[in-house]
């Protein structure tokens, strides 16, 4: 009994730790620029951020499960570096189709709202990036899942921070040359700078 409890506690510990790491120390947008264009698109189109992040997290988490199961098979394959993206894309495709089917059957009333976000999040750089980072780092199952959760939460956090200044950066207050996307890039750069204060050094990619 105590062993079961200890393993649950260990699982939970790894899960939460890696979720926090992925959310802050390895924030998908602010430290690796993954999903930046998607983030700006969501703000521009006014998609509900919480819902999009939930969908992204679900897709990343489910894909992480599949990738974790097949990852050991890749270790002894020739040219595993070259073949890995194909395998991961196939895993994401399975999850993508599954999520679409679930949306159509269980959330049919809201499918008009949900489906565009599912299409946008499935083959997002943030999702594939999380899977590649997880497999590269030889994470255990709990860490892999936690990293997926943290990726979704980190995406939400970064998008929230970008949305605060979005209207301002597209307004007359900003000089014409910088108005819009250029100022937004500099803004994201400074936010990234603040997150690097937590990290303190370049991170591996």
């Amino acid at each position: 009994m105590s062993e079961v409890f200890a393993s649950i506690a260990g699982f939970a510990g790894d899960y939460v730790a890696f979720a926090l790491i992925a959310m802050f120390l390895e924030n998908t947008i602010l430290t690796r620029a993954l999903g930046t264009s998607t983030s700006l698109l969501i703000i521009r189109k006014g998609f509900p951020l919480v819902l999009f992040s939930v969908i992204l997290t679900v897709i990343t988490t489910l894909s992480s499960v599949l990738v974790f199961l097949v990852n050991p098979l890749l270790k002894n394959v020739a040219y595993s570096y070259s073949v890995t993206p194909l395998l991961f894309v196939l895993m994401i495709s399975l999850v993508y189709v599954a999520v679409l089917l679930i949306t159509n059957s269980c959330f049919s009333k809201h499918r008009q709202k949900i489906l565009p976000m599912v299409h946008l999040s499935a083959f997002n750089c943030a999702v594939l990036g999380a899977l590649l980072l997880g497999s590269q780092s030889n994470m255990n199952f709990a860490s892999f899942l936690g990293f997926g959760l943290g990726t979704g939460l980190g995406f939400a956090l970064a998008t929230f921070l970008l949305s605060i200044a979005y209207d301002r950066l597209y307004s007359d207050r900003v000089p014409k040359a910088f108005r819009g996307f250029p100022a937004m890039l500099i803004y994201i750069g400074i936010l990234s700078l603040s997150f690097y204060g937590l990290i303190g050094h370049e991170i591996s990619f």
């Binding site: 620029a33 250029p182 100022a183 500099i186 400074i190 700078l193 690097y196």
Partner: peptide, 15 residues
Amino acid sequence: MFPFAGFIILGFLAA
């Protein structure tokens, strides 16, 4: 060499 510099340089080029 940091990503934040990449964002800022791209921002200026975009401007």
